[in-house]
């Protein structure tokens, strides 16, 4: 619902916007978003740790860049209204509505893209089953190649 709705074009920039993307004003953002926002992005190198870019250590910056890269590889889709699939995003507890942007994790759990991307920047685990995402991802790569 509400803030979890995302236009198909408002893409990964929302991730970089950090905490500011979480208020309700988001839905008005139609079309491709501007490449940079005035607000300072807040990063979360680990759960419960918030930093702006200048406060990040080099190691944390690398970690975040890698994380962003990994997240891009996770499949996304648009909710097609099929009732056999998961109906609710456990992060916002909002129901999936036809047209919602979703992201699918290798463990087959799905979430609103905005909701899960925000979490994955903090912790690379599935909120539902606590399965570490990167390990699962690497296994998928190996079997595919």
């Amino acid at each position: 619902m509400g803030n979890c709705l995302n236009t198909p074009t408002a893409d990964d920039i929302s991730l970089l916007r950090g905490s500011d993307s979480q208020d309700g004003s988001e839905t008005a953002n139609l079309g491709p978003p501007p490449p940079y926002q005035e607000s300072v992005p807040i990063y979360h190198p680990s759960p419960n740790v918030s930093r702006t870019v200048t406060q990040l250590t080099e190691e944390e910056q690398i970690k975040i860049a890698k994380r962003l890269g990994l997240i891009q590889h996770l499949p996304t889709g648009v909710h097609d209204g099929c009732c056999k699939k998961t109906k609710e995003c456990v992060i916002c507890m909002g129901e999936f509505i036809l047209g919602d942007r979703l992201r699918y994790l290798p463990c087959m759990h799905s979430f609103h893209k905005d909701c899960i991307d925000d979490w994955l920047m903090r912790s690379f685990t599935c909120p539902s089953c606590m399965e570490p995402v990167d390990a699962a991802l690497l296994t998928t790569y190996e079997t595919n190649n």
């Binding site: 619902m1 509400g2 803030n3 979890c4 979480q22 208020d23 309700g24 916002c92 507890m93 909002g94």
Partner: peptide, 12 residues
């Protein structure tokens, strides 16, 4: 309404 408040409303 902030996303935190929306979710807490649902939980409540």
């Amino acid at each position: 309404m902030a996303s935190m408040e929306k979710r807490l409303q649902k939980e409540l």
